[in-house]
Lab assay of single mutants.
Amino acid sequence: YFQGQLNAMAHQIQEMFPQVPYHLVLQDLQLTRSVEITTDNILEGRI
């Protein structure tokens, strides 16, 4: 994955969860590489 793709995914998640800091979303995406998994992590309070 290149950074631009991760940034696009992070923006997509931020639209759904504007209360979660962008850098935390991006940090999780770098591990998961998945909008779905990061979204689940937010919903389950891991982020």
Rank of each mutant, 00 (worst) to 15 (best):
Y1A: 13
Y1L: 12
Y1M: 12
Y1T: 12
Y1E: 13
Y1H: 11
Y1C: 14
Y1F: 13
Y1I: 14
Y1G: 13
Y1V: 11
F2Y: 11
F2G: 12
F2I: 12
F2T: 15
F2R: 07
F2C: 11
F2M: 12
F2E: 14
F2H: 12
F2V: 11
Q3S: 07
Q3R: 10
Q3L: 08
Q3E: 14
Q3G: 08
Q3W: 07
Q3D: 14
Q3C: 13
Q3K: 11
Q3P: 12
G4C: 14
G4E: 15
G4M: 13
G4F: 12
G4W: 15
G4L: 14
G4R: 13
Q5M: 14
Q5N: 10
Q5C: 14
Q5S: 10
Q5A: 11
Q5D: 14
Q5G: 09
Q5I: 12
Q5R: 09
L6F: 08
L6C: 08
L6A: 04
L6Y: 08
L6E: 03
L6D: 03
L6S: 02
L6I: 10
L6P: 02
L6H: 03
L6M: 08
L6N: 02
L6R: 03
L6K: 02
N7I: 15
N7C: 14
N7T: 13
N7S: 13
N7Q: 15
N7G: 09
N7K: 14
N7E: 15
N7L: 15
N7Y: 15
A8M: 13
A8L: 12
A8T: 10
A8N: 09
A8Q: 12
A8E: 12
A8H: 10
A8I: 12
A8S: 09
M9C: 08
M9D: 05
M9Q: 06
M9F: 09
M9P: 01
M9A: 06
M9V: 07
M9N: 03
M9T: 04
A10D: 00
A10R: 03
A10Q: 04
A10N: 00
A10P: 00
A10I: 08
A10S: 04
A10M: 07
A10L: 09
A10K: 02
A10G: 03
H11I: 12
H11L: 15
H11E: 09
H11R: 14
H11A: 13
H11T: 10
H11V: 10
H11C: 11
H11W: 12
H11S: 10
H11K: 14
Q12S: 09
Q12P: 01
Q12Y: 13
Q12H: 11
Q12K: 13
Q12L: 12
I13R: 00
I13Y: 01
I13K: 00
I13P: 00
I13M: 04
I13Q: 00
Q14V: 14
Q14P: 00
Q14K: 12
Q14G: 08
Q14C: 11
Q14I: 13
Q14M: 14
Q14D: 02
Q14A: 12
Q14T: 11
E15H: 13
E15P: 02
E15T: 12
E15F: 12
E15D: 10
E15A: 13
E15W: 10
E15R: 15
E15G: 09
E15Y: 12
E15S: 13
M16G: 04
M16R: 13
M16N: 07
M16W: 08
M16E: 05
M16Y: 07
M16S: 07
F17A: 01
F17S: 01
F17G: 00
F17D: 01
F17L: 02
F17Q: 01
F17K: 02
F17T: 00
F17N: 02
P18R: 05
P18H: 03
P18V: 03
P18C: 06
P18F: 03
P18G: 04
P18L: 04
P18A: 04
P18W: 05
Q19D: 11
Q19G: 11
Q19P: 02
Q19K: 11
Q19F: 14
Q19V: 05
Q19W: 15
Q19T: 10
Q19H: 14
Q19E: 11
V20L: 09
V20E: 02
V20G: 01
V20S: 03
V20H: 03
V20M: 08
V20K: 00
V20Y: 09
P21S: 08
P21W: 06
P21E: 08
P21H: 05
P21A: 08
P21C: 09
Y22F: 13
Y22R: 07
Y22M: 09
Y22V: 06
Y22G: 04
Y22P: 05
Y22C: 08
Y22W: 10
Y22H: 06
H23I: 10
H23K: 08
H23T: 08
H23L: 09
H23F: 11
H23D: 10
H23M: 09
H23Q: 09
L24G: 02
L24V: 09
L24K: 07
L24Y: 07
L24T: 06
L24D: 05
L24R: 06
L24N: 04
L24W: 10
L24C: 08
V25G: 00
V25F: 04
V25Q: 00
V25D: 01
V25K: 00
V25C: 06
V25S: 01
V25I: 15
V25W: 01
V25Y: 03
L26M: 09
L26K: 03
L26C: 09
L26S: 02
L26V: 09
L26F: 09
L26W: 10
L26T: 03
L26G: 00
L26R: 04
L26E: 04
L26I: 11
Q27M: 12
Q27I: 10
Q27T: 08
Q27V: 08
Q27E: 11
Q27W: 13
Q27H: 09
Q27S: 10
Q27C: 11
Q27P: 00
Q27G: 07
D28W: 08
D28N: 06
D28H: 03
D28S: 05
D28Y: 06
D28R: 05
D28F: 07
D28P: 11
D28G: 02
D28A: 05
D28T: 04
D28L: 07
D28K: 01
D28C: 11
L29V: 05
L29K: 00
L29P: 00
L29F: 03
L29E: 00
L29D: 00
L29S: 00
L29C: 03
L29Q: 00
L29M: 03
L29Y: 02
Q30R: 13
Q30E: 13
Q30P: 00
Q30S: 10
Q30Y: 15
Q30F: 14
Q30I: 14
Q30L: 14
Q30W: 15
Q30M: 15
Q30T: 11
Q30C: 13
Q30V: 12
L31S: 09
L31Y: 11
L31C: 10
L31G: 06
L31F: 12
L31A: 10
L31K: 12
L31N: 11
L31M: 12
L31E: 11
T32C: 05
T32G: 02
T32N: 03
T32Q: 01
T32P: 00
T32V: 02
T32F: 04
T32M: 02
T32E: 01
T32R: 02
T32W: 06
R33G: 14
R33S: 07
R33C: 14
R33Q: 13
R33P: 01
R33I: 07
R33N: 11
R33W: 15
S34Y: 04
S34H: 03
S34M: 03
S34R: 04
S34A: 04
S34C: 05
S34Q: 03
S34I: 04
S34F: 03
S34E: 02
V35I: 12
V35R: 08
V35Y: 08
V35M: 10
V35A: 08
V35W: 09
V35Q: 06
V35H: 04
E36H: 09
E36Q: 12
E36G: 08
E36Y: 10
E36W: 10
E36F: 10
E36R: 12
I37G: 07
I37L: 11
I37P: 00
I37N: 06
I37H: 08
I37Q: 11
I37D: 08
I37E: 10
I37M: 12
I37K: 13
I37S: 07
T38K: 00
T38M: 03
T38L: 00
T38C: 08
T38D: 00
T39N: 03
T39P: 00
T39R: 12
T39L: 12
T39I: 15
T39V: 15
T39H: 05
T39A: 09
T39W: 08
T39D: 01
T39K: 12
T39S: 08
T39Y: 07
D40C: 15
D40Q: 15
D40F: 15
D40I: 15
D40T: 15
D40Y: 15
D40H: 15
D40N: 15
D40V: 15
D40S: 15
D40P: 01
D40M: 15
N41Q: 01
N41D: 01
N41F: 04
N41M: 02
N41A: 03
N41P: 01
N41R: 09
N41E: 01
N41W: 04
N41S: 04
I42G: 00
I42Y: 03
I42D: 00
I42F: 03
I42A: 02
I42Q: 01
I42S: 01
I42V: 05
I42C: 05
L43C: 07
L43D: 01
L43F: 06
L43E: 05
L43P: 00
L43K: 12
E44C: 12
E44Q: 15
E44N: 15
E44D: 08
E44M: 14
E44T: 14
E44K: 15
E44G: 11
G45H: 06
G45R: 05
G45E: 04
G45Y: 05
G45P: 01
G45F: 06
G45M: 06
G45W: 06
G45K: 06
R46H: 06
R46M: 06
R46Y: 06
R46S: 04
R46W: 07
R46P: 01
R46A: 04
R46D: 02
R46V: 05
I47Q: 02
I47P: 02
I47A: 02
I47V: 10
I47D: 01
I47K: 01
I47S: 02
